[in-house]
Design a protein around this nucleic acid. Structure first.
Lengths: 138, 138
DNA sequence: CGCAATAATGAGAACAATTATTATTTGTGA
DNA sequence: TCACAAATAATAATTGTTCTCATTATTGCG
């Protein structure tokens, strides 16, 4: 953690730009996210946030995560039935998940091709499709 | 439900063949699964099992599901962060999930292609890769 | 500036899916 | 039949997440 004033101001600006009130908690949460790996869980975020500062309660963490997702600052990734992961990369891309190690990696958009578009119902655009490549337990 | 003796005997045989003791509960659970849609949740199974017969407790349902998966009678599908889904199709194949409707569909093995195999670490065979195609909320 | 309206936060309860515990029951094999 | 090994039931515990609601910030306006 340990962010300087310029950094925090920049974060506040980004929140405002996304249409969010830059409250002190949200700024601290966003700053903690910036210091975490690209993919993280709510729990990891909570620990990072409360590393050295007074506590921000779970509810606010979860609330902010939902808000950040709703405002396009984060993406949710559902690979583990136990917990939701968050991804700071909000560009359309795909994921590779290995349940054996718990590792989650990005895959570029073009890495995967759907052979037959008629398999997808309705008018779904390619950028509205997220692939999750899951290594099967063997 | 309402299964006849021949049917139940056949189910018991399948359990035995998979290396499982065909207890009365497991036979009833397997019979209920046969009457459910291809994809189902533990909850749906529990309701189906206890539809007209004396109750089988949750623990046994969950236990049997885990056993059936471990013995190759069922496949787990993780798409919904809330609950695990089970699939009676144990052949390698892929899934299409629409979070908006909750609908889960099968996709044939050849429907999706990974362009660059070097993206996958280690010696993972194609049949050890499960794709989940997820419609993005838009 | 001060104050009402609005939004955000904290604390803890509530919840849902799943797993663990343990006593009881059932089945198996000698 | 008896001892031993599973399996089951009942229920408690756990985990991740959401809800409730009282308290505290923040904003907009007179």
């Amino acid at each position: 953690m340990l962010h300087n004033a310029t950094e925090l101001h920049h974060i506040a600006d980004r929140l405002k730009h996304a249409g969010l009130l830059p409250t002190s908690q949200r700024v601290r949460i966003a700053a903690a996210i910036a210091a975490l790996p690209q993919h993280f869980s709510a729990q990891e975020l909570q620990q990072a946030v409360n590393w050295d500062s007074p506590e921000i309660c779970r509810a606010t963490i979860y609330n902010s995560l939902r808000l950040f997702v709703a405002h396009g600052l984060l993406q949710e990734v559902h690979v583990d039935p136990q917990r939701t992961l968050y991804d700071t990369n909000t560009e359309p891309h795909h994921h590779l998940f290995d349940p054996a190690t718990g590792a989650l990696h990005d895959l570029p958009l073009g890495a995967i091709e759907l052979k037959d578009r008629t398999l997808i119902p309705g008018k779904i655009r390619p950028e509205d499709i997220a692939f999750i490549v899951r290594i099967r337990a063997s």
